[in-house]
Amino acid sequence: MLTFAAAVLFLIITPGPGVMTTAGFGAAYGFRASLSYVVGLFIGTNLVMLAVMTGLAAVLLSVPGLRLVLLVLSVGYLLYLAALIALAGARVAFIEARSAPGVMRGVLLQAINPKAYAVNTSLITGFNYAPDAFLFEMFTKALILNAIWIPIHLAWLWAGAALHRLNLPHSTQRAINILMALSMLGVVALALWSASRVKA
């Protein structure tokens, strides 16, 4: 169980779409305004976990072409969220970025987030510590995952919000928002590179 908990900590704390958007929205809009988005990520993560536990995710991802569709949707949505972060406080013709995303956007990200499926699959199907008690193992794994997931994401949100609370000049805050958005794009590029390596 301790090995499982260590694996959860390592896999969740590393930058991915969830933590990057959490920190980015925290920096752009502040802690309280972005908290509902993190609630959405939490709900979405648990839905993905349930899909993995029940085998639904394996069935869906075995459909030819669905992985590619998931990747395209994920990249497109991450680009949109990166634009929201970069343009926070700005008013431009093609996007309004004056308020933080809510619960449903967090749920949607996790629903199409390849890392969420990869992490949950490796954690749920691996590290078997109670092979004769499936329900006990699934229940305790869910408890451990959430016990680690919640403080990590709140810490990332707090770190981003700490920048927001500094009341920096508008130009400096805009530069930070753009930097956070570019960091997200780096994660997207890494995901695409990783996917291409798997295909090769």
Results as ranks from 00 to 15, higher is better:
S36H: 11
S183F: 06
G26W: 02
Y37H: 08
G40H: 10
G186K: 03
L157D: 03
G186W: 02
R67G: 08
L109Q: 09
H153N: 14
L2D: 03
A195C: 09
L78Q: 11
L84T: 15
L71S: 08
L71P: 03
G18T: 13
P131R: 04
N146W: 01
Y129M: 10
V75P: 02
W193D: 02
G89M: 05
A28Q: 06
L81K: 10
T54R: 04
A28T: 07
E137Y: 07
V188T: 10
N46P: 06
L135W: 14
A161P: 03
I43P: 09
G186S: 07
Q110S: 07
G44A: 00
V198F: 07
V103G: 04
A6N: 13
A175K: 15
F134G: 05
V92D: 01
S171Y: 13
I13C: 12
W158E: 03
L163A: 00
V188N: 01
A6V: 15
L73G: 09
I178D: 05
G89V: 02
T140V: 13
T54E: 06
A116S: 15
V107S: 03
R32Q: 10
A51G: 10
V19K: 01
N128K: 12
I152Q: 13
M1Y: 04
L56Y: 10
P64M: 01
A130K: 04
A90Y: 00
M53W: 04
F4C: 11
F136P: 04
G76I: 09
F134H: 08
M180I: 11
N167K: 13
I144E: 03
S34E: 05
P17Q: 10
L190V: 04
S183L: 11
G160Y: 02
I176S: 06
N128P: 11
V52K: 12
L56G: 06
K115S: 12
L108A: 12
L61I: 09
A195I: 09
A93F: 01
M138S: 15
Y117P: 11
